[in-house]
Design a protein around this nucleic acid. Structure first.
Lengths: 330, 330
DNA sequence: TTGAAAGCGCTAACAG
DNA sequence: CTGTTAGCGCTTTCAA
């Protein structure tokens, strides 16, 4: 292993003080043109890079941003990460990704790690049932909550989705088409997003004049498997003719169950997903869905990250949209 | 901003030397039980985390791994990143993701950044036409090349895909079904993967007794747009009745063009993709494809990363598989 | 225009 | 068992 290239090694190399090298490399004017040029040339030739560790130890901010997501295969999270990572690259920020699988313990571990590297900020989709992050962590890192909001996390910005109207609209549309047995699958009430979406669903039913029976409303810890299993149940034993999903993972799981249906039943069943991965347009002649403006969320998140003087609890809400690609009558 | 919790602050707090605190926190036996317990309790209470910066400065390895991918929306890359990130989390490694968009300059920038934070390793899909990383970088970081191999990168492990047989098989199958006008879209010869896949395609044609005319073989810098545009051309002006894709991004781009076809033409056109995102099973009755064992690639990559005594140029090759989900006759 | 000293948090190597 | 010193790479402060 070759010796590290440091300002000291360069200084020794050139027979000058390391301070002069430091000044030259940080564009301090108090260096004669001759020495500056020599230093820059040598540094370039040797491939010098400043040690982030040394800077961090002096108290400079690290330019490391943590991103905590349930997973990164779901196209919504992938697209968010993609946009944010690209933007971070352009802004000289490092994006460290930790996947939580919605497991609070994995989340806690990830946060501790990010503290070790003195991350300047954490963008997170709070896992259901997680703790309160500890006050110590909060003081040290900027926190941005994405999609969901956990009440116990204080002094954190939030970038959220307002999907109330879109969901209610979808329900009304299903009712228009004659559906009376409309199933809903969403997160449980422990999450802000779960509460809101369920309320929107119920509001839609009310608007359409459909009695709100709880039997078709399935809530729980959101996951692919949860979505798939509840959808199977809705299709099989509960006789739902339409289904509406209240979450990204749930949507893909429910889609799985939907595609398992025999062609005859599927063509008479209405599916409304959540999120709008590119392939939804190609399936079954085009799947209807609740579209979430993922790029706008990502850009707002970056704006919060780079805001030099953030409000303690900045709060952003982006509207979702009901995309109707054609739904069968009941 | 509250003062940082350090071994010194804890030591002062307890009226002892910071060395004792250090020892207690790193399980050095030379600490009396009483003081050790007091220290651990206090550290825990205050939420102490060891500064990674200080450790790095002392020369300890950073446990930071860089991952350079073209993007993370393509399900292959997403799945690879997902598996690797999960595994990294379990091994206490930080995964820093930089997206290159296959742009050599972005790649260079990302590598320089990773050197700043003294990343212990870089996993990268080399961008087409990129440079040689500089010998300085190589000496400092372990490098793993993924999927593609750039000859100018030396002393780097490679985790690759052997898709020769799968591609040739696919061509032979298409020929069996009566296709004679088979289009191919792949990366150009600047990349190892591009050369190999094209050769496999030609070998398949030879086996099937189809003359190798170059008009149906499209190569270039691989991207979604490239795949889409060449596929459009193949379908429209070149009258291809079958198409085989030689790359992840290309496959999705070509799929886009395929789904644009009028139903009558599409049902008579054979599409063979590359990579096997979950949704391929749901499209058009199930898309045939060249499947790449993404999880095995990711696990092998982790094995290379955590290998304490790696060979200079460890080299791994995983077989791809032709998945036939039904293809129309010509 | 240049240099010397100090200190950020941590541990190895010595001294008690 | 516990404490002191020194040094990792860097910049701020003070001195020449």
């Amino acid at each position: 292993m070759a010796k590290r290239i440091t300002i000291k090694s360069i200084a020794q190399d050139l027979g000058i003080s390391h301070m002069t090298v430091s000044r030259a490399l940080s564009n301090n004017p108090n260096v004669s043109k001759a020495t500056r040029d020599a230093i820059l040339a040598r540094a370039n030739e040797l491939g010098y890079v400043k040690s982030a560790a040394a800077s961090a130890m002096r108290g400079d901010t690290t330019r490391i941003v943590g991103l905590l997501l349930p997973n990164i295969v779901n196209e919504f999270y992938a697209r968010f990460a993609n946009t944010l990572a690209t933007a971070c690259g352009q802004n000289g920020l490092h994006l460290i990704i930790h996947l939580t699988n919605d497991d609070p313990q994995a989340e806690d571990r990830a946060i501790a790690r990010l503290r070790e590297v003195q991350a300047m900020a954490v963008v997170m989709v709070p896992s259901p049932g997680g703790g309160d992050l500890g006050a110590a962590h909060l003081r040290a890192m900027k926190v941005v909550q994405l999609i969901r909001q956990r009440p116990s996390i204080r002094q954190a910005a939030a970038v959220l989705v307002n999907d109330r109207d879109a969901i209610a609209q979808a329900v009304v549309r299903l009712a228009q088409l004659g559906h009376r047995s409309i199933g809903y699958i969403g997160a449980d009430a422990g999450l802000s997003s779960g509460r809101n979406r369920l309320a929107a669903f119920q509001q839609g039913l009310a608007t359409a004049g459909i009695p709100v029976t709880s039997e078709h409303m399935h809530t729980g810890a959101p996951s692919f498997a949860m979505g798939r299993d509840h959808a199977r149940q809705l299709f099989a034993s509960e006789g739902a003719t339409a289904i509406l999903c209240g979450g990204f993972e749930i949507s893909n799981g429910a889609l799985n169950a939907f595609m398992e249906l025999p062609e005859a039943q599927r063509s008479q069943t209405a599916f409304v997903g959540y999120g709008d991965p590119s392939f939804y347009t190609w399936i079954n002649g085009g799947l209807s869905t609740i579209r979430v403006p993922v790029d706008r969320l990502a850009h707002q998140t970056l704006a919060v990250l780079t805001d030099p003087d953030p409000a303690d609890e900045a709060y952003f809400n982006f509207g979702a949209e009901f995309v109707d690609r054609g739904l069968p009558r009941a």
